[in-house]
Computed example of a mutant assay.
Amino acid sequence: MPTLERLRAAFPAGALARGDGGDWSPDLALPASLWEIFGHGDDVSAEAFALACARSFAGENMPAKPWLWVQDRASIRRSGRPCLHGLSPHLRSGLIHIAAPRPVDALWAMEEGVRCRALSFVIGELAEDPKPLDFTATRRLVLASEASGVPLILVRKDGHANLSAARMRWRAAAAPSLAHRWNERAPGAPTCHAELFRARGLRPGAFHLAYGIGGDDAERAAWPGDRLDLVPELRDRPLDADRLATG
Protein backbone atom coordinates (compact mmCIF):
# COMPACT_ATOMS: atom_id res chain seq x y z
CA MET A 1 0.00 0.00 0.00
CA PRO A 2 1.46 3.46 -0.88
CA THR A 3 2.57 5.73 1.97
CA LEU A 4 -0.23 8.24 1.40
CA GLU A 5 -2.86 5.50 1.48
CA ARG A 6 -1.47 4.13 4.75
CA LEU A 7 -1.66 7.60 6.30
CA ARG A 8 -5.23 8.09 5.12
CA ALA A 9 -6.15 4.76 6.68
CA ALA A 10 -4.45 5.70 9.95
CA PHE A 11 -6.09 9.14 10.30
CA PRO A 12 -9.74 10.14 9.98
CA ALA A 13 -10.82 11.32 6.53
CA GLY A 14 -9.66 14.86 5.84
CA ALA A 15 -7.54 15.03 8.99
CA LEU A 16 -4.17 15.40 7.28
CA ALA A 17 -3.60 18.35 5.00
CA ARG A 18 -0.24 16.87 4.05
CA GLY A 19 1.14 13.50 5.02
CA ASP A 20 3.69 12.73 2.33
CA GLY A 21 6.59 12.15 4.67
CA GLY A 22 7.87 15.67 4.01
CA ASP A 23 9.32 18.26 6.37
CA TRP A 24 7.39 20.09 9.07
CA SER A 25 6.74 23.81 8.66
CA PRO A 26 4.72 26.37 10.66
CA ASP A 27 2.19 26.57 7.82
CA LEU A 28 1.52 22.83 7.77
CA ALA A 29 -2.05 22.00 8.79
CA LEU A 30 -2.07 18.92 11.02
CA PRO A 31 -4.87 17.02 12.77
CA ALA A 32 -5.62 17.58 16.44
CA SER A 33 -3.79 15.09 18.60
CA LEU A 34 -1.24 14.88 21.42
CA TRP A 35 2.12 16.59 20.94
CA GLU A 36 4.96 16.45 23.47
CA ILE A 37 7.56 19.20 23.89
CA PHE A 38 10.55 18.53 26.15
CA GLY A 39 12.27 21.43 27.91
CA HIS A 40 14.80 21.90 30.68
CA GLY A 41 14.93 23.79 33.97
CA ASP A 42 13.74 27.37 33.92
CA ASP A 43 14.08 27.69 30.12
CA VAL A 44 10.59 28.65 28.95
CA SER A 45 11.24 27.94 25.25
CA ALA A 46 9.07 24.81 25.48
CA GLU A 47 6.14 26.80 26.86
CA ALA A 48 6.55 29.52 24.20
CA PHE A 49 6.72 26.92 21.45
CA ALA A 50 3.64 25.19 22.87
CA LEU A 51 1.67 28.45 22.81
CA ALA A 52 2.72 29.16 19.22
CA CYS A 53 1.76 25.67 18.04
CA ALA A 54 -1.56 25.77 19.88
CA ARG A 55 -2.33 29.18 18.44
CA SER A 56 -1.87 27.80 14.93
CA PHE A 57 -4.37 25.04 15.78
CA ALA A 58 -6.95 27.53 17.03
CA GLY A 59 -6.88 29.71 13.90
CA GLU A 60 -10.01 31.78 13.42
CA ASN A 61 -11.56 30.36 16.61
CA MET A 62 -9.46 32.71 18.72
CA PRO A 63 -10.43 34.49 20.83
CA ALA A 64 -14.01 33.20 20.57
CA LYS A 65 -13.25 29.96 22.44
CA PRO A 66 -11.52 29.61 25.83
CA TRP A 67 -8.43 27.47 26.26
CA LEU A 68 -7.03 25.44 29.15
CA TRP A 69 -3.59 25.36 30.79
CA VAL A 70 -3.02 22.51 33.30
CA GLN A 71 0.05 22.29 35.60
CA ASP A 72 1.01 19.98 38.40
CA ARG A 73 2.68 21.26 41.57
CA ALA A 74 6.21 20.27 40.50
CA SER A 75 5.99 22.10 37.16
CA ILE A 76 4.72 25.24 38.91
CA ARG A 77 7.76 25.14 41.20
CA ARG A 78 10.06 24.93 38.19
CA SER A 79 8.62 27.52 35.84
CA GLY A 80 5.87 29.33 37.74
CA ARG A 81 2.27 29.98 36.76
CA PRO A 82 1.29 31.60 33.44
CA CYS A 83 1.64 35.39 33.52
CA LEU A 84 -1.57 36.81 32.11
CA HIS A 85 0.03 40.07 30.93
CA GLY A 86 2.85 38.16 29.25
CA LEU A 87 0.40 36.45 26.88
CA SER A 88 -0.71 37.85 23.55
CA PRO A 89 -3.76 40.11 24.03
CA HIS A 90 -6.11 37.77 22.14
CA LEU A 91 -5.15 34.87 24.45
CA ARG A 92 -5.65 36.60 27.80
CA SER A 93 -9.43 36.61 28.08
CA GLY A 94 -9.81 32.91 27.21
CA LEU A 95 -7.27 31.43 29.64
CA ILE A 96 -8.51 28.83 32.15
CA HIS A 97 -5.72 27.71 34.49
CA ILE A 98 -5.75 24.57 36.63
CA ALA A 99 -3.12 23.98 39.33
CA ALA A 100 -3.33 20.24 40.04
CA PRO A 101 -1.79 18.91 43.26
CA ARG A 102 -0.58 15.64 41.71
CA PRO A 103 0.39 14.44 38.21
CA VAL A 104 -2.54 11.99 38.16
CA ASP A 105 -4.92 14.91 38.82
CA ALA A 106 -3.28 16.94 36.05
CA LEU A 107 -3.67 14.07 33.58
CA TRP A 108 -7.34 13.71 34.51
CA ALA A 109 -7.88 17.45 33.94
CA MET A 110 -6.13 17.29 30.56
CA GLU A 111 -8.25 14.37 29.40
CA GLU A 112 -11.46 16.07 30.51
CA GLY A 113 -10.28 19.25 28.77
CA VAL A 114 -9.63 17.65 25.39
CA ARG A 115 -13.03 15.96 25.54
CA CYS A 116 -14.66 19.41 25.80
CA ARG A 117 -15.36 20.73 22.30
CA ALA A 118 -15.97 24.20 23.73
CA LEU A 119 -12.19 24.63 24.15
CA SER A 120 -9.81 25.73 21.40
CA PHE A 121 -6.85 23.75 22.74
CA VAL A 122 -5.27 22.42 25.93
CA ILE A 123 -1.71 22.92 27.19
CA GLY A 124 -0.50 20.51 29.86
CA GLU A 125 2.70 20.81 31.88
CA LEU A 126 4.33 18.03 33.89
CA ALA A 127 7.76 17.83 35.53
CA GLU A 128 10.21 14.93 35.22
CA ASP A 129 8.73 11.45 34.64
CA PRO A 130 5.69 10.92 36.87
CA LYS A 131 4.61 7.31 37.17
CA PRO A 132 0.99 7.94 36.02
CA LEU A 133 2.32 9.25 32.69
CA ASP A 134 2.80 5.90 30.96
CA PHE A 135 2.00 4.67 27.46
CA THR A 136 -1.61 3.88 28.41
CA ALA A 137 -2.15 7.44 29.69
CA THR A 138 -0.74 9.00 26.53
CA ARG A 139 -2.82 6.67 24.39
CA ARG A 140 -5.98 7.76 26.21
CA LEU A 141 -5.06 11.40 25.58
CA VAL A 142 -4.42 10.75 21.88
CA LEU A 143 -7.77 9.02 21.40
CA ALA A 144 -9.67 11.70 23.32
CA SER A 145 -8.01 14.53 21.40
CA GLU A 146 -8.51 13.00 17.96
CA ALA A 147 -12.13 12.13 18.72
CA SER A 148 -13.04 15.67 19.82
CA GLY A 149 -10.75 17.67 17.56
CA VAL A 150 -9.25 19.55 20.53
CA PRO A 151 -5.41 19.45 20.39
CA LEU A 152 -3.27 18.83 23.47
CA ILE A 153 0.30 20.15 23.75
CA LEU A 154 2.07 18.46 26.68
CA VAL A 155 5.17 20.26 27.99
CA ARG A 156 7.60 17.91 29.75
CA LYS A 157 10.02 19.78 32.03
CA ASP A 158 13.22 17.79 32.68
CA GLY A 159 11.51 14.63 31.45
CA HIS A 160 12.87 11.74 29.40
CA ALA A 161 11.50 10.57 26.07
CA ASN A 162 10.11 7.27 27.30
CA LEU A 163 7.53 5.19 25.44
CA SER A 164 4.63 7.40 24.37
CA ALA A 165 1.71 7.43 21.93
CA ALA A 166 2.17 11.15 21.15
CA ARG A 167 1.89 11.88 17.41
CA MET A 168 4.72 14.44 17.47
CA ARG A 169 7.59 14.77 19.96
CA TRP A 170 9.87 17.81 20.18
CA ARG A 171 12.83 19.12 22.15
CA ALA A 172 12.95 22.90 22.53
CA ALA A 173 15.67 25.17 23.88
CA ALA A 174 16.62 28.83 23.69
CA ALA A 175 18.86 29.84 20.78
CA PRO A 176 20.96 32.99 20.12
CA SER A 177 18.81 36.02 19.38
CA LEU A 178 18.70 37.60 15.94
CA ALA A 179 20.76 40.68 15.12
CA HIS A 180 19.31 43.92 16.43
CA ARG A 181 17.99 46.27 13.79
CA TRP A 182 19.82 49.40 15.01
CA ASN A 183 22.39 48.29 17.62
CA GLU A 184 24.77 45.43 16.79
CA ARG A 185 25.72 45.13 20.48
CA ALA A 186 22.14 44.66 21.66
CA PRO A 187 20.17 41.39 21.45
CA GLY A 188 17.49 41.24 18.80
CA ALA A 189 14.35 39.15 18.58
CA PRO A 190 14.50 35.91 20.62
CA THR A 191 14.67 32.59 18.81
CA CYS A 192 14.16 28.94 19.67
CA HIS A 193 15.88 25.77 18.52
CA ALA A 194 13.33 22.98 18.11
CA GLU A 195 14.15 19.39 17.25
CA LEU A 196 11.40 17.15 15.93
CA PHE A 197 12.68 13.70 16.84
CA ARG A 198 9.50 11.69 16.28
CA ALA A 199 6.49 12.36 14.07
CA ARG A 200 3.83 10.39 12.31
CA GLY A 201 3.85 11.14 8.58
CA LEU A 202 6.71 13.69 8.74
CA ARG A 203 10.49 13.48 8.66
CA PRO A 204 12.43 14.30 11.85
CA GLY A 205 14.47 17.48 11.67
CA ALA A 206 15.89 20.49 13.50
CA PHE A 207 14.42 23.98 13.10
CA HIS A 208 15.48 27.50 14.09
CA LEU A 209 12.33 29.44 14.93
CA ALA A 210 11.37 33.02 15.71
CA TYR A 211 7.98 34.53 16.41
CA GLY A 212 6.37 36.79 13.82
CA ILE A 213 5.76 40.30 15.17
CA GLY A 214 4.05 42.11 12.32
CA GLY A 215 3.94 45.90 12.26
CA ASP A 216 3.26 49.03 10.24
CA ASP A 217 6.64 49.79 8.68
CA ALA A 218 7.90 47.85 5.66
CA GLU A 219 10.49 45.70 7.43
CA ARG A 220 8.31 44.66 10.35
CA ALA A 221 5.32 44.11 8.09
CA ALA A 222 7.38 41.53 6.20
CA TRP A 223 7.23 39.38 9.33
CA PRO A 224 3.97 37.45 9.55
CA GLY A 225 2.03 38.65 12.56
CA ASP A 226 1.51 36.38 15.56
CA ARG A 227 2.89 33.11 14.23
CA LEU A 228 6.06 31.03 14.04
CA ASP A 229 8.59 31.82 11.34
CA LEU A 230 11.63 29.84 10.17
CA VAL A 231 14.80 31.94 10.25
CA PRO A 232 18.27 31.27 8.75
CA GLU A 233 21.17 30.05 10.84
CA LEU A 234 23.30 32.81 12.38
CA ARG A 235 26.73 33.45 10.91
CA ASP A 236 29.71 32.45 13.05
CA ARG A 237 32.07 35.42 12.89
CA PRO A 238 34.28 37.47 15.28
CA LEU A 239 32.51 40.29 17.10
CA ASP A 240 34.90 42.94 15.75
CA ALA A 241 34.93 41.79 12.11
CA ASP A 242 32.75 44.66 10.86
CA ARG A 243 34.74 47.23 12.85
CA LEU A 244 38.08 46.02 11.43
CA ALA A 245 36.70 46.01 7.91
CA THR A 246 35.79 49.70 8.17
CA GLY A 247 39.29 50.65 9.34
Rank of each mutant, 00 (worst) to 15 (best):
M1R: 07
P2G: 11
L4K: 12
R6L: 15
R6H: 08
R6V: 14
L7G: 04
A9F: 09
P12T: 10
A15D: 12
R18A: 13
W24S: 11
D27H: 07
L28N: 07
L30M: 14
L30Q: 12
A32F: 03
S33D: 14
W35F: 09
E36P: 05
I37P: 00
F38D: 00
H40N: 06
G41C: 03
A46V: 08
A46N: 09
E47K: 01
L51K: 03
A54H: 01
A54E: 02
S56C: 00
G59D: 11
P63I: 11
A64F: 07
A64W: 04
R73C: 07
R73N: 12
R73F: 04
A74V: 14
R78F: 04
S79M: 14
G80R: 07
G80M: 05
P82C: 07
L84S: 02
H85F: 15
P89S: 12
H90C: 08
L91F: 11
A99W: 01
A100H: 10
A100E: 09
P103I: 08
V104I: 12
D105K: 11
A106W: 04
W108L: 10
M110E: 14
E111H: 11
E111W: 07
G113P: 06
V114H: 10
F121Y: 15
A127Q: 10
A127Y: 11
D129W: 02
P130D: 06
K131P: 04
L133V: 03
D134G: 09
L141E: 03
V142G: 07
V142R: 03
L143W: 00
A144L: 12
G149C: 08
P151V: 05
P151A: 06
P151M: 09
K157A: 00
G159M: 01
H160I: 02
N162L: 14
L163D: 08
R167F: 02
W170E: 05
R171M: 03
L178A: 13
L178F: 03
H180N: 15
W182L: 14
N183K: 13
R185D: 15
A186T: 01
P187E: 07
P190G: 10
C192A: 06
H193S: 14
H193L: 12
A194D: 04
L196P: 03
L196S: 07
F197L: 02
R198F: 05
G201I: 03
L202V: 05
G205M: 06
F207C: 06
H208S: 01
L209S: 08
L209R: 07
L209Q: 10
A210V: 10
A210S: 15
D217W: 03
D217Y: 04
D217C: 11
A218R: 11
E219V: 13
R220Q: 12
L230E: 13
E233G: 14
R235F: 03
R237Y: 10
P238Q: 06
P238S: 05
P238I: 05
P238F: 10
R243L: 13
T246L: 12
T246K: 11
G247S: 09
